[in-house]
Amino acid sequence: MSVYILRFFFDPGSGICLWAANDAARDKWDYPIDTRDLPLPENTWRFAYHLCSWFDTSIDWTYPPDPSPWDAAERDRFNNAAQQFLETLRGQLGTDFDVVDESATSAAA
């Protein structure tokens, strides 16, 4: 059984893509989780910041309810990168962590 359960999703403008989903994770990291605080290589946590910044470009910040400025190809590139990151993240965190994908970036989403 995993000790820490994390939710993976993007929240525009937050710079965060991991959120505590159980008491053990909240007690250790609070609700939003800075990837630098996890037992991850620097390149992994830096890529998390890159993904969050990239996701922010999917929003029309002059009027956020408007459609995304991304075309289908950009959305697919982002979704593929997010899923590859999630796979890497799960592998590097190991069995003490369960990372639940709520990102809507998978092909099934």
Score class of each variant (00 low, 15 high):
residue 55 F to M: 02
residue 59 I to F: 01
residue 85 F to A: 09
residue 35 T to W: 00
residue 44 T to S: 13
residue 13 G to D: 04
residue 64 P to D: 14
residue 3 V to P: 08
residue 77 R to H: 11
residue 31 Y to W: 13
residue 74 E to N: 00
residue 51 L to C: 04
residue 46 R to L: 12
residue 103 S to N: 07
residue 32 P to Q: 01
residue 41 P to R: 08
residue 71 D to K: 10
residue 34 D to Y: 05
residue 46 R to S: 01
residue 55 F to A: 04
residue 36 R to K: 15
residue 2 S to Q: 02
residue 108 A to D: 14
residue 35 T to V: 01
residue 43 N to I: 10
residue 66 D to M: 10
residue 103 S to G: 13
residue 29 W to G: 11
residue 64 P to Q: 09
residue 31 Y to D: 14
residue 64 P to S: 04
residue 91 G to I: 06
residue 94 G to P: 14
residue 80 N to T: 14
residue 41 P to M: 06
residue 66 D to I: 01
residue 107 A to E: 13
residue 30 D to W: 12
residue 103 S to C: 10
residue 63 Y to F: 15
residue 92 Q to F: 03
residue 53 S to M: 05
residue 38 L to D: 04
residue 95 T to N: 09
residue 98 D to M: 11
residue 96 D to C: 08
residue 84 Q to I: 06
residue 92 Q to K: 07
residue 34 D to I: 04
residue 33 I to K: 07
residue 39 P to I: 00
residue 4 Y to I: 08
residue 48 A to E: 02
residue 60 D to F: 07
residue 15 G to A: 07
residue 108 A to P: 06
residue 27 D to Y: 02
residue 12 P to M: 03
residue 7 R to G: 12
residue 34 D to S: 14
residue 67 P to Y: 10
residue 88 T to G: 08
residue 7 R to W: 06
residue 34 D to G: 11
residue 10 F to V: 13
residue 36 R to L: 01
residue 28 K to M: 15
residue 80 N to Y: 01
residue 81 A to H: 00
residue 85 F to N: 03
residue 109 A to Y: 11
residue 71 D to Q: 08
residue 76 D to W: 04
residue 10 F to N: 03
residue 72 A to H: 06
residue 63 Y to W: 12
residue 96 D to H: 04
residue 13 G to K: 03
residue 61 W to I: 15
residue 55 F to L: 05
residue 73 A to Q: 13
residue 2 S to R: 05
residue 59 I to W: 03
residue 50 H to D: 15
residue 25 A to N: 01
residue 48 A to D: 07
residue 66 D to C: 04
residue 48 A to C: 09
residue 91 G to D: 15
residue 72 A to M: 11
residue 20 A to D: 11
residue 32 P to R: 03
residue 53 S to V: 02
residue 49 Y to Q: 12
residue 14 S to L: 05
residue 88 T to R: 14
residue 102 E to Y: 08
residue 24 A to Q: 00
residue 24 A to F: 10
residue 11 D to I: 07
residue 7 R to S: 15
residue 103 S to K: 12
residue 95 T to W: 08
residue 98 D to N: 12
residue 62 T to W: 11
residue 35 T to E: 10
residue 3 V to R: 15
residue 42 E to Y: 01
residue 99 V to G: 15
residue 91 G to T: 06
residue 44 T to V: 05
residue 53 S to R: 00
residue 26 R to V: 07
